[in-house]
């Protein structure tokens, strides 16, 4: 553990990533204690007030400006992070676990299992997201859990396809073959020999998916799935500010930057983790 932390502190990227991420999580957890303005009730007269840095800590100051209903954007970003980070984390992890597992199974077992799973992927890809979202709202009702389910459903296929391709090549490799000859079980081979070797692409897909999921959240909340107003999520803030993009740039730009910062920190951390755990790099 000590070695792990020392390595983390010594790597510039990893440290930066974890610091930003910790800051975001701390902001989310401590939001109510930060003395921010009310994130859901605005002052209509102060609609779309531009960012001001004078009297930063005075009451009524809006360092990132206000939105189309006069709500403080900084406060909405901080409160919104609670929803966005939760949804993002759950959907990425859930989609990732399911996708990686099925990808390994399809690639390693091949044959009818592979064909079945891959046609399932085709079917899933071809069904429009909007239809899927409307179906879930109608059948299961709107809730954050259902939102995560839909997001994970759209997500697992990417992991599955990419991991499967990787596994198709891996299973013919010497170390897998020899594991098989010495009598390792299928499950053992998948877990011990295949899984560690597909972690790199899985991590990259996960960071790509994170950005996609955060932005996609908005489209789904307009269909009634997920965050409903006046609550904020970053995706919603982006989408609601869309029509004001050329008249009040700050309304969309700051939530956009928040998303970018999150994705950046996760990327940096992911890159570092990969290097750290890569057995071939450790000497």
């Amino acid at each position: 553990m000590k070695a792990f932390l020392r390595a983390l502190v010594q790597s510039r990227g990893g440290l930066f990533g974890i610091l930003i991420l910790m800051l975001l999580v701390a902001g989310a957890l401590l939001a109510p204690t930060l003395g921010l303005p009310d994130p859901v009730r605005g002052d209509l007269r102060a609609r779309m007030a531009p960012p001001t840095w004078t009297g930063l800590f005075a009451p009524g100051a809006h360092p990132l400006g206000t939105d189309q209903l006069g709500r403080d954007i900084l406060s909405r970003i901080v409160y919104g992070s609670r929803i966005t980070l939760t949804i993002g984390a759950y959907a990425v992890v859930l989609g990732g676990i399911v996708g990686v597992m099925l990808g390994i199974v399809a690639g390693y077992c091949g044959g009818i299992t592979d064909r079945l799973l891959m046609r399932l992927v085709d079917i899933q890809l071809a069904i429009p997201l909007m239809l899927l979202a409307l179906l879930v709202v109608a059948a299961l009702g709107p809730s954050l859990t259902n939102l995560v389910i839909v997001l994970a459903l759209t997500s697992w296929i990417r992991y599955a396809r990419i991991i499967r391709g990787q596994v198709l090549a891996l299973r013919e490799r010497e170390f897998v073959q020899s594991a098989r000859t010495i009598g390792a079980s299928t499950a053992q081979i998948m877990l011990r020999h295949i899984l560690p070797n597909v972690m790199t692409p899985a991590l990259v897909v996960a960071t790509l998916e994170l950005a996609r999921i955060i932005i996609m959240d908005a489209a789904l909340s307009f269909l009634g799935l997920g965050v409903q107003p006046p609550a904020a999520s970053w995706g919603r803030m982006l989408a609601e500010g869309r029509v004001y993009i050329s008249t009040a740039w700050w309304v969309v730009t700051f939530p956009g930057l928040a998303i970018m910062l999150t994705v950046l920190s996760v990327n940096l951390l992911g890159d570092w983790l990969r290097d750290y755990f890569d057995p071939r790099l450790r000497t």
Partner: peptide
């Protein structure tokens, strides 16, 4: 959202649901 906010201020317990 504004209407919901004002009705909440007089004591109602409103839940917005958006839909297509």
């Amino acid at each position: 959202q504004v209407v919901a906010d004002q009705l909440t201020q007089v004591g109602l317990n409103l839940k917005i649901s958006e839909m297509d």
